[in-house]
Amino acid sequence: MASLIDCPHCGPRPREEFSVRGDAAATRPDPEAGPEAWHAYLHLRTNPRGLHREHWRHSGGCRRWLVVERDVVTHAVHAVRDAQEGAQ
């Protein structure tokens, strides 16, 4: 795991300031999407060897939700952006 995360608002900060929520690839289904879609959203996760996109929160800093792209093999963090920018 990376030692530093480059927060787009606060700059590179120690990862202890951040908390992870998990997979950012899943998008919340339509309320009427049906049980299978909701089951997939809530319970199914892939665990690829390589790049992961995850939701992290700078809980000890600006408190913004971020999308962190990191490689679980090399531990490299490839990109960090504010989650709201990506969601819009």
């Binding site: 919340r28 939701h55 929160r57 408190r63 913004r64 939700w65 989650a83 709201q84 969601a87 819009q88």
Partner: peptide
């Protein structure tokens, strides 16, 4: 608080 911020920033930024 973290949950509501997630809802506001990520789920429904509009």
């Amino acid at each position: 608080m973290a949950h509501l911020e997630f809802c506001a920033q990520v789920l429904w930024p509009e």
